[in-house]
Design a protein around this nucleic acid. Structure first.
Length: 466
RNA sequence: GGUGCCAUCGCCAAGUGGUAAGGCCGCAGCCUGCAAAGCUGCUAUCCCCAGUUCAAAUCUGGGUGGCACCUCCA
């Protein structure tokens, strides 16, 4: 297994700290709004990573947090005149449902900030005790970035030249402009907690460090966890700050490997709410099968920036269709887990920093080869068995082809239409039997007007939504 | 302004020192009553310039053009 480490900026062989075991932590959503395509991309990337690690016989513990303490949540709650918890529960549930729709497995642990306050207090206290954090007159607690000689080593940033000046001009009581809040003193709002540092809320960066210590960190190892992941935008300042907190408060560094997935843009523009519908995953799911979205969002390398547009999405669907057509062709055959060369090769390329393009090329070559043999030697039992085993593996490791093939091709067609189409097909087949091709072609035109295509096969006539 | 990333066929997209994967689209053919699906065949020397090397899309330098981060952000 090889992983590109975005801190060292090289591809490194992945060697877990504890043989055979992997701890993976990914920054999850702040539950104040619907998930957008970027959330989906990140969740998909690390879902795939987890599957690949497991396929390599590694025992993975995957944690993805839910940030349920945040100013944006409070703002939303007051705007809608609702309880904080009502908001966070609503968006957490929605997130779960949407993730499921795109085939993202649930992480092993989903820690919430509100349930991790003990760890949060403990970490802040440690940072104060070791002089890495200080309290201000306003009651805030800040991390002292100047106390950490390795600060900015993660994101490779250079200290801002204007730092001194900013400090002078700033009315804040921060020691350095780069210092960030571990604890924000708040007295007059709905979501506050009584901590040893007074009433207030924890800083966002701190949550992750604390939750990792509480839920995932190994003791006595040089790093708390093996892999830390998230969107590329989190490298600075979020991950930089997380790393600083952990290294200063504990006897280990935060993570051995860092992985950052690229951005999702829409039609060449950065995502923003003003661009409308396609921004939210829930809206995309109304128009497209969740698995098509999964395939599309995963179809380019995870580190590249992704340009979401409907033309490419259609292209992705056509590729996924090929998997399903083969599945349809082999419908009804028993599952099996036979070893095949294809499976070895697939795992090999995916284990190379998730080379999805090579994986898809292998899959498409396998499909072509299988179809070709099926065309010329349709009754080849060994080949069919092997093909089934290959398809099962693609389902397991990539989550492609998990549905019933017939249902997949009929996505978004209601029962009434389905019935009508079936009736027309029956009529057409009767006409065909009587060699009344004029009528059968007329019936086909009628069927096509439902926005479907039909195909006559030895097993009967099937239709697919176009 | 600072830091970093990217530039491969009409489109999407791998490959990062050994002579350009795969998909879409297109064209020709097989199959089909005709189609659809499937199959076969055909289509690029890798933004520009210079250099290193027996050998470069792949390394170095310069240029041009995109983009991201530097404030909350997946």
């Amino acid at each position: 297994m090889y992983i590109y480490d975005s801190v060292q900026k090289i591809k490194r062989e992945f060697i877990p700290m504890i043989k055979g075991r992997v701890s993976l932590y990914v920054c999850g959503p702040t539950v104040y709004d619907d998930a957008h395509l970027g959330h989906a991309k990140s969740a998909l990337v690390f879902d795939l990573l987890t599957r690949v690690l497991r396929a390599n016989s590694l025992d993975v513990t995957y944690a993805r947090n839910i940030t349920d303490i945040d100013d944006k949540i409070i703002k939303k709650a007051s705007q809608q005149n609702k309880d904080i918890k009502e908001i966070t529960d609503f968006y957490t549930d929605a997130f779960d449902k949407e993730m499921k729709a795109i085939g993202v497995n649930k992480p092993d642990i989903e820690p919430k900030a509100t349930k991790s306050l003990d760890a949060i207090y403990e970490l802040i206290q440690k940072l104060i005790d070791t002089n890495h954090a200080y309290k201000t007159n306003e009651g805030d607690v800040y991390f002292d970035t100047s106390s950490d000689s390795e600060y900015l080593s993660l994101s490779h940033r250079v200290q801002d030249e204007d730092d001194k000046q900013q400090r002078v001009e700033s009315s804040q009581s921060k020691k350095n402009s780069a210092d960030f809040a571990l604890w924000k003193s708040v007295k007059d709002e709905s979501l506050t907690f009584d901590s040893p540092f007074g009433k207030g809320r924890p800083g966002w960066h701190l949550e992750c460090s604390a939750m990792i210590e509480k839920h995932l960190a190994s003791k006595g190892t040089p790093f708390a966890i093996d892999i830390h992941g998230g969107g590329a935008d989190l490298l600075f300042p979020h991950h930089e700050n997380e790393a600083a907190q952990t290294r200063c408060a504990t006897d280990h560094k935060l993570s051995n490997y860092w992985m950052h997935n690229g951005f999702v843009n829409i039609d060449g523009e950065k995502m923003s709410k003003s661009l409308g519908n396609s921004f939210f995953l829930k809206d995309a799911l109304k128009e497209y099968d969740g698995e098509v979205l999964r395939f599309y969002l995963l179809s380019t390398h995870y580190r590249s920036n992704f340009n979401f547009n409907s033309d490419d999405l259609v292209l992705a669907k056509k590729r996924l269709d090929k998997i399903y057509r083969l599945k349809k062709r082999l419908f009804g055959l028993a599952k099996n887990t036979e070893k095949t060369e294809f499976k070895d090769q697939l795992l090999k390329v995916l284990s190379d920093d998730i080379n999805i393009s090579s994986a898809l090329a292998l899959i498409e070559e396998m499909i072509s080869k299988t179809n070709e043999t099926l065309d010329t030697a349709g009754k080849h039992k060994l080949l069919k068995k092997e093909a089934i085993s290959n398809l099962d593996y693609i389902e397991e490791i990539l989550g492609f082809g998990v549905k019933n093939a017939f249902e997949y091709f009929q996505f978004g067609v209601d029962e009434q239409k389905k019935q009508k189409i079936d009736e027309l097909i029956t009529l057409r087949n009767e006409a065909k039997k009587e060699k009344n091709f004029e009528l059968s072609d007329k019936l086909r035109d009628e069927i096509l007007s439902f926005g479907v295509s039909i195909m006559d096969t030895a097993q009967g006539t099937f239709w697919e939504k176009v």
